[in-house]
Amino acid sequence: MALTITCPICGARNGYEFRYGGEEKGPKPDEAALRSPEAWCDYIHFNRCKAGAQEEWWFHRDGCGAWFTIHRDTVTNREIPGKEAGI
């Protein structure tokens, strides 16, 4: 596999320039909402581990330094272009 990732600023680049940043789970609930250990654990540690298309965060470490999300198929390890992902 040889992932190519499209950075919104730098364009399509070698995946090893980037760092993975987790499944997109939406903004972190505020502290009050995380009072219960279950809710806290659910947001912080639990993953869906989807086999297929998922939205996920990436950081362009050896590049512009942006955090952004892409859609990627975790079975083929290929980025799904925006329009195919329905965005």
Binding site: M1, A2, L3, G15, R19, Y20, N47, C49, A51, E56, T74, V75, T76, N77
Partner: peptide
């Protein structure tokens, strides 16, 4: 390989 995958492909 430092990102999630269900592929068992290898990498260069």
């Amino acid at each position: 390989d430092p990102w999630p995958n269900y592929t068992t492909q290898t990498t260069a």
